[in-house]
């Protein structure tokens, strides 16, 4: 396929993916708005007002970056895992597998679909946050870079989950038992300085901690960890997941008998 043909194939998947989550916006966008509104109301306003500042910021200001990133993570992951598994389950992934489209284009199409939903939901959540506090961006490009890279990373992770999934249960196990605990323990609602040294060291093995802190650095200018290290960790995970996804597609694991 020529580059132009590859771009048409890529665009076909992306448009299809965006239309898919836009068509079912009540399932894909509204829940994130409701959940995050509750976080802002309960943790930010009601409980947060009783707490002192963290790193010089009020509690609600401190948790806003993490909550936005949490919605980016869950929506990027959720979009790709449910869409690609749906393609597998109904066998219409075969429409793509029989075509001459390269695996990298197929993967990019689904990942960009996931990123698009993450950006839409992330933007809506940011808008909701403005009702509760004043949003400002200390380093706007770092913020954007963290959001986009994290969305790509979790779109790739969702793709891996979908490839291995054999039932609808399998696409909810990882988000429930791995993703949610890692996100909650990733410093969305607290600074790891609040933890004992032992738990601080344990927390450093959680990759989401680096992303949340990089996001917080982008918005507030404060972080529990070195920002360069955060980008290195994100980059390493991205490279590994991208390579692994292409390996899965090349060998047809979970797709071809």
């Amino acid at each position: 396929m020529t580059l132009e043909q590859q771009f048409i194939a890529f665009k076909t998947i992306v448009v299809k993916e965006i239309l898919r989550f836009a068509r079912i916006w009540v399932q894909t966008i509204v829940p994130a708005v409701i959940t995050t509104s509750l976080y802002f109301l309960i943790f930010g306003n009601l409980i947060g007002s009783q707490l002192g500042d963290i790193n010089g910021y009020s509690y609600i200001d401190y948790i806003v970056p993490g909550i936005i990133l949490m919605s980016v993570i869950t929506n990027a992951y959720g979009n790709v895992v449910s869409s690609f598994y749906g393609h597998k389950f109904q066998h219409h992934v075969e429409e793509m597998l029989v075509s001459p489209m390269p695996n990298s284009v197929l993967l990019a199409g689904f990942v960009v679909g996931g990123v698009a939903r993450a950006l839409v939901v992330g933007s809506v959540v940011t808008l909701v946050a403005t009702f509760y506090t004043n949003i400002h961006f200390e380093h706007i490009f770092i913020t954007l870079a963290v959001v986009i890279l994290t969305a790509i990373l979790f779109s790739l992770a969702g793709f891996v989950n979908a490839v291995y999934a054999n039932s609808f249960d399998d696409i909810s196990i990882i988000p429930t038992f791995v993703l949610t605990p890692l996100t909650y323990l990733g410093g969305v609602f607290f600074s790891i300085e609040m933890l004992s040294t032992f738990w601080q060291n344990i927390a450093l093995f959680n990759p989401i901690l680096y992303m949340v802190n990089a996001m917080r650095y982008g918005m507030l200018g404060v972080s529990d960890i070195d920002i360069t290290m955060a980008f290195i960790i994100i980059g390493v995970f991205l490279a590994c997941l991208y390579g692994f996804c292409l390996y899965l597609l090349h060998n047809g694991i979970g797709l071809r008998q």
Binding site: M1, I8, T12, K16, M101
Partner: peptide, 11 residues
Amino acid sequence: VNQAGYYGIPR
């Protein structure tokens, strides 16, 4: 039309 898209055919 989408199937044609996967083969790189303009919409």
